[in-house]
Design a protein around this nucleic acid. Structure first.
Lengths: 288, 288
DNA sequence: TCCACGTTGAAAAAAAATAGTCAAACGAGG
DNA sequence: CCTCGTTTGACTATTTTTTTTCAACGTGGA
């Protein structure tokens, strides 16, 4: 019986504070608990005596014995992944584990949905600072688009996240030049307004359109230069945005590496500016 | 420079007793040294003061720092089995596939960071429509928080996503009642403003605070009733939000299932309303 | 609303670990 | 064989850590 299992088993009997401790211990297991009581108390947000009560409640004679057991596990663990197997078997029945496993499968299937060549082309477009980048997503997917915007802003200038309100679009559209890049996110329940925007951008402004969508392909695809069709199915009532997130995070990594010194410098400047004035933020995260 | 190397390098300068200690430490490295001074002294066949002299001689401030260093090494070392392999193969030619694989691994590790019990408790809180729900995230994580808000809004009423601007918070905070739920997202580069909000909410309004953070634990943990500590490390310069997304999607599935007929009815109504008038959207996705 | 119970953290006590002191033991060189 | 310098461990002081005590607090039930 590992400490982890013991804690899991005792969870139902724990009080609120004790549960916080349990979380802190399990969150960074087992190293999180290889500290003094004080430090663990600090990290868990409870008092030191609560830690003592916690360890005795889950069946140890004292904090030291508890730590000794953890070190013992560590030592055993380095020999055989026994604990891992046990944990896995234990968690077969729960939803979280199951969901995690399924999600992982979907994420790994992303690789077959995006070819390396396509990825590289998109990275090249986004890394080219002579091109402005405009982003927009649908009702739900706009939050994903915004994740990309936020990160890109840290890496390079001229990132424009279009506001949700259609009426504000024309201004932005008019400022697009032919060499610019428009990244659209549109998953099923495709939105006509975005399709319209895409068409206008493609036809009138001739900007490069990158579309991130699902395998059923938003109608925007016909106006897009690059279409990334990601898996979104989950076997639940809800589609998953995981692949989209994984995809944009992969993009971020590569775009930032394209000119890392510049990225680093920019982030540092950014931090300085952010920290000095008492936070004066732009309300909705879009640029004006 | 590992402790082992340090010891090896210093060996020539050691006295007989000190060499005994060195042998004892290296013989069962690093576990042999993860004991009290007394035990190590016993095992080495020397006295406790010799141990003290030994550790200071090889350049540590004291026995504790020495042990801490060892634990640190252990922790670094343990990252290798899964991640190091991935890092090695982070090849240019197949970046997407590698990234997908690593991302999948991280997502599947989510299961060990979130226990089923904890998950169930959070689902119960969010499913309880008598509780209003307030959400907020940090600079980047707010987009994740927003994803949750968006979905929750489709499922149930009284979802309030706090605006990014701090000055608008007091209004919302004042409307919080004791039975309400506040969901905060805060990943490293923890933001003081959010911590302040959390404290005020916990102390003044006594609402239930759910914190989604990373294993280093945002200082908000101290004021939170439920702390979800997710893996975010990626071996890239950027932290990943994948687990956070997977987590909230899992939440969504279960919260929506808690009262599926009601959820379904609500979504249908929602669709009708959304499609009929020529889209009049709320600018930033927060409620007024 | 009030009461009884369980939970919590501050403070103090207890225990332990660690560092310091000093004299004895040891060994090298005379 | 003696002397000096080094090393060593018993003893002690100090610091740190852990545990216990106890009062206050919040919670849930009457």
């Amino acid at each position: 019986m590992t400490v982890r299992e013991t804690i899991r088993r005792e969870t139902p009997n724990l009080t609120a504070s004790e549960r916080k401790i349990a979380n802190a211990v399990l969150a960074d297991y087992p190293y999180g608990a290889l500290q003094t009581i004080q430090e663990l108390a600090e990290r868990s947000g409870v008092s030191a005596p609560s830690i003592t009560r916690f360890v005795s409640k889950i069946g140890f004679a004292g904090y030291q014995e508890f730590q000794r057991q953890l070190i013992g596990e560590l030592r055993e663990g380095s020999r055989s992944p026994l604990d891992l197997k046990a944990t896995e078997r234990l968690s077969r029945s729960d939803f979280v584990a199951d969901y995690a496993r399924r999600s992982a499968a979907i994420v790994s299937s992303m690789a077959s949905a995006v070819s390396q060549e396509q990825f590289d082309r998109i990275v090249a477009l986004l890394s080219d600072q002579s091109r402005a980048v405009f982003l927009l997503g649908g009702r739900i997917s706009d939050t994903i688009a915004r994740l990309l915007s936020q990160h890109l802003r840290q890496i390079r200038p001229r990132i424009h996240h279009l506001p949700a309100n259609q009426e504000d679009w024309p201004d932005h559209v008019m400022s697009m030049r032919r060499q610019d890049v428009v990244v659209l996110f549109d998953f099923r329940r495709y939105q006509p307004d975005i399709a319209k925007l895409a068409e206008r951008v493609a036809v009138n402004r001739r900007a490069t359109v990158i579309l991130v969508t699902d395998k059923w392909m938003s109608p925007i695809a016909r106006h897009s230069d690059h279409v990334v069709a990601l898996p979104i199915e989950n076997d639940t009532a809800w589609d998953t945005a995981l692949c989209a997130v994984a995809f944009i995070e992969a993009l971020i990594v590569k775009v930032s590496e394209a000119d890392w010194p510049s990225t680093k410098a920019r982030i540092e400047t950014w931090e300085t500016v952010r920290l000095s004035p008492p936070t004066m933020k732009n309300g909705d995260g879009t640029d004006a």
